[in-house]
Computed example of a mutant assay.
Amino acid sequence: MHANSVGLTPSQQPKPNKNSRVPIIVFSMLIILLLVLGWQMRDEYFITAQNGVGYALGIIGGSMMLLLLIYPLKKRFPQSKLLFFSTRNWFRIHMMLGIVGPLLVLFHCNFSLGSTNSNITLASMILMVSSGLFGRFIYGKIHHGLYGNKIMLQELLHSKILAREQINDSALAVNSISPEQMKIIQHCEHKLQKVNTVFGSLSTSFSLSLTTRFAQRRLKKEIKASSTEIETLNHLFDYLQAVRKIANLAFYERLFSLWHLLHMPIFFMLVITGFVHVYAVHRY
């Protein structure tokens, strides 16, 4: 069976463009710089939450966080003409608003604690941002880059099957697969079946990460001068890498589903505490 009949092996999979990370790195450095400057200047009281620029920053930052709802609405109604940007573009905007909005609120409160209701709102916002960053981390594990397509389990399974068939063909040709190596393959196949829960997939991912990496180190030591055995070794590497990716993807997909159930309640808690804060400020 040829590679193009099933799919690409892990070593042939397209890699994310490194140039696409430059804007993200620049944006992250700018945010960090603003956080450091804001923290160092908090005792100067250039900004106050009650009026002027500080008040405006609070309104703008809070409005930005309300706009975060547009992205899930776009996902729910992708054909809506009212939400004129594409889902991918709204995701970019969602990521930016989820960072810039809270940053403006921090400047609004001058990086300091205030009344009880404002402190509760601030704590909810920090929890929401932390949840968003954690979700961003998980998202990157199940997609090709920040804005890339979702990594499909079927693609990885095809890669694993292809590598396994190539290993079998090599073994029939030169009998170059040792019983120990075949035992490792059987162990991997058995472990991949135990990924039904979050904790089960975590255990499998951790176990196979160690097993496959140690196996690859041993394979490097066992390599001989024969080009056929070098080719077999490459097939084994492809197989072990595919196994590791399958186990990791299964874990992160289940973790992402669990995170998604928790992130929305955290966001609505922020919205409620934000409205209470605004009401309390203007009422009293």
Rank of each mutant, 00 (worst) to 15 (best):
A3N: 10
S5N: 14
G7S: 04
S11F: 00
Q13I: 08
K15Q: 15
F27N: 01
S28Q: 03
L30K: 03
L33Y: 07
L35I: 15
G38T: 08
R42D: 02
Y45T: 10
Y45P: 00
A49P: 01
Q50C: 08
V53Y: 05
A56C: 01
L57A: 02
I59F: 09
I59V: 14
G62K: 00
S63E: 05
L66H: 01
L68K: 03
L68M: 15
L69A: 15
I70C: 09
P72N: 07
L73M: 15
K74D: 03
K74I: 02
S80F: 04
L82T: 13
L83Y: 11
L83P: 01
F84T: 11
T87C: 07
N89D: 13
M95L: 10
M95F: 05
M95R: 09
G98Y: 03
H108T: 07
C109F: 10
N110C: 05
F111I: 09
S112Y: 08
G114F: 06
S115C: 03
T116K: 09
N119E: 00
T121D: 11
T121R: 12
M125N: 03
S130Q: 02
S131P: 00
G132I: 01
L133A: 06
F134D: 03
H143I: 09
H143G: 05
G145P: 01
G145D: 03
L146G: 05
G148H: 04
Q154Y: 13
E155G: 07
I161M: 13
I161C: 07
A163R: 04
E165F: 07
E165A: 08
E165H: 10
L172H: 10
S178G: 08
E180D: 15
Q181G: 07
Q186L: 13
H187Q: 15
C188D: 01
C188P: 01
K191I: 08
Q193K: 14
T197H: 10
T197R: 06
G200K: 08
T204V: 10
S205R: 01
S207I: 11
L208N: 01
L219T: 02
K224M: 13
E231S: 13
L233A: 12
N234I: 04
F237T: 02
Y239L: 14
Y239S: 05
Y239T: 05
L249N: 04
A250I: 00
L255K: 05
L255A: 14
L255P: 01
F256P: 00
S257V: 09
S257L: 11
H263P: 09
F268C: 12
F268Q: 09
M269C: 12
V271G: 01
F275A: 10
H277M: 11
V281W: 11
H282T: 14
